[in-house]
Design a protein around this nucleic acid. Structure first.
Lengths: 245, 245
DNA sequence: GACTTTTAAATGTCTGACAAATGAAAATTA
DNA sequence: TAATTTTCATTTGTCAGACATTTAAAAGTC
């Protein structure tokens, strides 16, 4: 593990990269303790502050965790799906908000990936998934539900559908995409009429899931995607009309 | 933007979180300059080193970039799909290697998401995508290609297929999944016979893409997924047999 | 006006110190 | 002896101050 003094990058960035590479290619294994900050400083021939900045970079990516006190130090972290998922949501949310991704493009991506889950969900769904989904549908049908609560319930519903696929990789990727869309979805005002239509489709999806009918799930998801895009377009059109005034 | 002195977490982590939140909910906009390290230190009533550690955490997530010299400082970064993509690959790769994700599960996820791209790819593909894919198929048919080069070409082929969907959100999610699987794929030794079969399927996919035939793409992808899983299972079976000796 | 020099501001790095947490060893006590 | 308490060494967390380096703008020079 060496750093190149001619590299233009900051020392702390170089050191972080060296350690990161060592973790990725297996030279440092999970739960292994890194040398102490003082030792690393000596190894890389830099000050302790520089080493610390490098370690903070790695901690921000959940690659290491640190513990104080005797026997403490920096340890290679076993990155969990949950941690990765949290980071994914942060990144995806910012990507969408900073890069002017259109509502349609985000919608297409989200529902396309959800369709990809359908065959697996139809096969692996269990009573818990179905119960969660029906409970969320029930919540959605309550009158006087705020738009915010409605969206949260919508996310919970779709999250259950994704989790039904029983594939952590799909769940991780998908849940990120679904939750990252929430800020965009929150722009929409869901009328009683549109909620009714969405609940209808949610019910269709849940029924099809119970019947292990993957094709019907996919069909309803396409309808839901189309309908959601219509709602989104209406909001955008209304905004443009308002800005022209 | 305040920090809570009673919080158990490190000061630098708290400060990083405070700034991160300000970025996410739009209080700090893209390209806006943060106060200088000295000013932040005063604002949060901590030392400059602590502020610096917080800023390094944010830099590791590409949330800010720093510039030295007069007029320099830390700026809110417009996170690009490319940067996010790089981070996604790092995280996904580690997730797969650290959490004992089975080859089948990863394969299912990857090909399912790729299938999700098929309808969009069939619609939006252009000559460039087709040319890239045919070029990779040609490379794959060269005798004496190393397993490593074969896998790299395989990734390039699938990447072109994903990019043909012309949806940056899908590309970002998918390219991560495809590349994260590469270490797993590298475990497989691709015989001439199996390469032949895969090239056949790649050709089918490319032909179907050219013909805007989404259904055929999906069918070939399913075949490819099944075949890849068979290859993976053989490797695992061979390994187990070897370890029993 | 074009070029060079100076200067101020900002991050990057280093040094040295102390605080706080933590586990292990040593000392004390029942 | 066994249990408890105390001490101690180790390690990260934080602070303060200094200097190096980079950079753009201001000042000076021809």
């Amino acid at each position: 593990m060496k750093i190149n003094p001619n590299d233009a990058a900051d020392l702390s960035a170089q050191i972080a990269e060296a350690i990161r590479d060592a973790i990725i290619n297996g030279q440092l294994i999970v739960d292994e303790r890194l040398p102490s900050e003082a030792e690393l400083a000596e190894q890389f021939d830099v000050s302790r502050s520089t080493v610390r900045e490098a370690l903070k970079r790695l901690a921000a990516q959940s690659l290491i965790r640190t513990q104080r006190g005797s026997g403490g130090g920096a340890f290679v972290n076993r990155i969990s799906f949950e941690e990765a998922h949290g980071q994914q949501i942060t990144t995806s949310t910012l990507l969408l908000s900073m890069n002017a991704v259109s509502f349609d493009v985000a919608c297409d991506a989200r529902f396309a990936m959800e369709q990809a889950c359908a065959p697996f969900a139809a096969e692996h769904r269990n009573a818990d998934h179905l119960a969660t989904m029906r409970a969320e549908i029930h919540r959605q049908s309550q009158p006087g539900l705020s738009d915010e609560s409605w969206c949260a319930s919508d996310v919970a519903f779709h999250r259950a559908l994704v989790d039904a696929a029983d594939n952590p990789v799909l769940s991780y990727q998908l849940a990120g995409a679904v939750e990252a869309m929430q800020p965009l979805m929150n722009m929409i005002t869901f009328t009683a009429r549109s909620r009714e239509r969405i609940i209808e489709l949610h019910t269709d999806i849940t029924d099809a899931l119970e019947a292990h009918d993957s094709a019907s799930i996919e069909k309803s998801l396409i309808d839901l995607s189309t309908y959601t895009k219509t709602l989104g377009d209406d909001v955008i059109a209304a905004k443009q009309k308002a800005s022209q005034t």
